[in-house]
Amino acid sequence: MSDEHRLKVDWIACNGYGVCEAAAPDLIVLDDWGYPILPDGSVPRELMGQARKAINDCPMVALSWENRASATGGRLGRLRFGRRGRG
């Protein structure tokens, strides 16, 4: 495990509300259809705050850390719930 902090989207859960872009404007842009385009690599340290806000603000709980080890407390339970809800 590295100390990389990558974001990932649960594409089935994501509804393209664009809340993540508003929360993390320096990190996330929206595509032609309103769905997030994530940064290619690791989230830089100075933008971690924005990334966390984007994760917490997503109404569909569709955004998360790719590496589960870097997920903060409480995230995993909500993540699973989000998947089941749509599955």
Binding site: W11, I12, C14, N15, G16, D31, D32, W33, G34, Y35, R86
Partner: peptide, 12 residues
């Protein structure tokens, strides 16, 4: 039709 980029992108 579950994922936005596929649903809307392929249609476009």
């Amino acid at each position: 039709m579950q994922c936005g980029p596929c649903k809307y992108g392929l249609a476009d």
